[in-house]
Write a protein that binds this DNA or RNA. Sequence first.
DNA 1: ATATATTAACGTCACAGTCT
DNA 2: AGACTGTGACGTTAATATAT
Length: 299
Amino acid sequence: MNKCGRKKYIKTNLRQMTMETIESQQDGSVTDSVAESESAHMQTQTGQNSVPTLAQVATIAETDESAESEGVIDSHKRREILSRRPSYRKILNELSSDVPGVPKIEEEKSEEEGTPPNIATMAVPTSIYQTSTGQYIAIAQGGTIQISNPGSDGVQGLQALTMTNSGAPPPGATIVQYAAQSADGTQQFFVPGSQVVVQAATGDMPTYQIRAPTTALPQGVVMAASPGSLHSPQQLAEEATRKRELRLMKNREAAKECRRRKKEYVKCLESRVAVLEVQNKKLIEELETLKDICSPKTD
DNA sequence: ATATATTAACGTCACAGTCT
DNA sequence: AGACTGTGACGTTAATATAT
């Protein structure tokens, strides 16, 4: 993708600006280098229908203020100020520590505690699916996929795919391998027993199928090659391509996850706004009541 | 019915921060 | 130091809404 040549715009400054503009400009401590980079960026964007971000809008609105503080801070301080914004998870968790009603985003300890990286992490609704071969796939609310064969008592042969949000994997949970999208736009989970659970990528309702694995490895699944076995330039090129595809695949997944967290974060903020609005309304009403009590009208 | 605008979701790139 | 991860920004695409 991205056939159109990407413009090399001033990324660093713009990036820093979008992260910290609103916060740092509250005390007017942003130098006009940021504003310069922003204007440069806006120029490069001429003719595109890209919508400025909130931070960009804020920057444009406050350029005058920031110009006044030119030269006030040195480069070190500027760097501190323009540091990376904490992740949505961190922000949300900070919010949730303030407000009891706000749910926390799990820290995904399981990954950090040495879980194999290929375990799928996704949220799915509780559903039961029957495959063309008569097998059943139950997707529990806890994020567990169970596969049972027809005719079995429903317990034998169960294979569990433990997802995120389900806490620590239960003992004995089967480790499955997760592969990103295959050529036909599906997502596949390799489960023991030479079977593949395939999730269709389209539609609101995910669909699952049991398939026999194809002979060729699906896109994104890569066999590890021992470094010593690489000799020819062609092999090196293949290795580079393989690494790139692996990186793209991982980044794809990371981007999905990031977007999901972002949506969650926004929802959280929205619900917080709603709560605060109700609270505010109540307080105003209370104030009016107290006013009436304290200063009764005298005719 | 068709054209245009808006929106949401996605993949990719670049880069800062973190990990090993 | 280099690999890895998370995220902002951007372009693309498909679906939906609105205008003509």
